[in-house]
Design a protein around this nucleic acid. Structure first.
Lengths: 102, 102
DNA sequence: GACATTATTGGCAAGATCGCCAATAATAGT
DNA sequence: ACTATTATTGGCGATCTTGCCAATAATGTC
């Protein structure tokens, strides 16, 4: 495996890692419908706002979301709209197949 | 958010988490081409075989792969073939968009 | 300017993850 | 039966993650 391959895999792993949490998946689903500020997301998740802010910071760092300031509000939105659909696909594929029926 | 929603998100998060590691992504890419035994995967990854075996155990637990015994060998194969394609899509979507060009 | 609102950052404790070694299990070959 | 090969499990330390509190920053309102 080349160095380039290793970097590619590491980058993809980072993207997946930034999505691999229930709160973050909820954030993704909400942002798919509309941009939201941190407070709205926090209310839906039911955690501390500092926790949600840190989740968003991670997702921003890997390029999954971006933010735009409006006064004291930070409006976040998705940078890739196909994300949830992808996960639907993974689940559907796994439900359909199994080792018992090769 | 209902209890059902929380469970759905938790399940999806578990699936993503089981993929969110460079070695596991390499495993997925290799299994997309053909079923492999643990030793082959271990050689490609360059880690200890016990480490790879544990990666595979996690991926099996969430239903991403399954295994079949052939003598002393364990042959692993993907249960969902669309996985890498999905990640391609995430990356492509993120490269194409940005907050600067809404 | 004083205060309220919104969000971010630093810090910390609890828990999870990762990777290696040692030990064990299971099978094949002699 | 003995040994070799392949894989899994237990255990441990090092590291990373998660979520809350406290403190800080940034902006709007009076």
């Amino acid at each position: 495996m080349t160095e380039v391959d290793a970097q590619r895999l590491a980058r993809r792993a980072a993207i997946l890692k930034s999505m691999a949490h229930p709160s973050r998946l909820l954030i993704i689903e909400m942002l798919e419908q509309a941009p939201r500020c941190v407070g709205e997301l926090t209310e839906a998740i039911g955690a501390d706002i500092t926790t949600v802010s840190k989740h968003l910071a991670v997702m921003k760092r890997v390029g999954l979301v971006c933010d735009e300031k409006h006064g004291t509000y930070s409006e976040y939105r998705l940078l890739c709209s196909c994300v949830t659909h992808l996960i639907d696909c993974v689940e559907a594929g796994m439900d359909a197949q199994s080792c018992d029926a090769p």
